[in-house]
Computed example of a mutant assay.
Amino acid sequence: MKAARIMTFFVLVLAGCGGTPGRLSVPAAPSEMQVRVSVSSVVVGEISLPEYANASEVVRETEVGLIETVPDLIWADVPEDAMTNALVRHLSQITNVPVARAPWPLSSFPDAELTVRTERMLLQADGQLRLSGQYAIRRDDGPWAERIGDFDLSVPVRGDDLPALADAHAVAWRQLAEQIAGQL
């Protein structure tokens, strides 16, 4: 029922806004984690999201399990781009090594390449933001060459307003970066 209250609030707030939809922007959620890694640089390659999660409309799960758009609410940035930028920022800060988006902007080659395939990024009917999928880390040489890992994160949406939903995305993306950093 909490999710229903949150979504009802979103609809009521946005209904009074008129013709211009609200834009959901995900803030930075700094990490306290510091990890020593076995690579000296990382390129964040492909980040994929399900079609419903990468559309400009923000979506939610209904009580009966359907995915619907939140009326008059759109993303401030393309979700794949926003998530990629967040992972780059977090991994750089957590690992203290150069991390950049593909294509790699430097003349040398990166030590590792990260790919993330997200199967679920959705505000569930129970009020939890669910982020799940798989990531792959590829290296050409070193003590290990390739790794694949799964992630399944749930973050409560703490509040009945748009910043609470944005904050939940920020926390989920930070937690994903922390999990990946532990595998570099």
Rank of each mutant, 00 (worst) to 15 (best):
T84P: 09
N85W: 09
N85V: 12
N85H: 07
A86I: 11
A86V: 11
A86F: 05
A86S: 06
L87E: 11
L87R: 04
L87S: 04
V88S: 08
V88D: 04
V88G: 06
V88I: 13
V88T: 01
R89Q: 11
R89D: 15
R89F: 14
R89E: 12
H90G: 12
H90P: 05
H90I: 13
H90W: 10
L91F: 05
L91C: 11
L91K: 06
L91G: 11
L91T: 11
S92I: 06
Q93G: 11
Q93H: 14
I94G: 02
I94D: 05
I94T: 03
T95N: 13
T95H: 05
T95L: 07
T95E: 11
N96F: 02
N96C: 11
N96Q: 15
N96A: 15
N96G: 14
N96E: 14
V97F: 07
V97Y: 09
V97A: 15
P98I: 00
P98Y: 01
P98S: 02
P98V: 00
P98G: 00
V99G: 07
V99Q: 07
V99A: 14
A100E: 01
A100W: 02
R101C: 00
R101N: 03
R101F: 00
R101P: 03
R101Y: 00
R101G: 03
A102Q: 01
A102N: 04
A102Y: 01
A102S: 06
A102T: 02
P103M: 05
P103T: 06
W104F: 03
W104V: 06
W104L: 01
W104Q: 02
W104H: 01
P105L: 00
P105V: 00
P105G: 01
P105R: 00
P105Y: 01
L106Y: 02
L106Q: 05
L106A: 09
S107F: 09
S107W: 03
S107K: 07
S107E: 09
S107C: 09
S107I: 09
S108H: 12
S108N: 11
S108C: 08
S108E: 10
S108L: 10
F109A: 15
F109H: 13
F109I: 14
P110I: 01
P110N: 11
P110Q: 04
P110A: 07
D111Y: 07
D111V: 13
D111M: 13
D111L: 13
A112K: 09
A112R: 05
E113T: 13
E113F: 10
E113P: 06
L114H: 05
L114Y: 02
T115V: 08
T115P: 12
T115L: 08
T115K: 10
T115F: 07
T115G: 08
T115A: 10
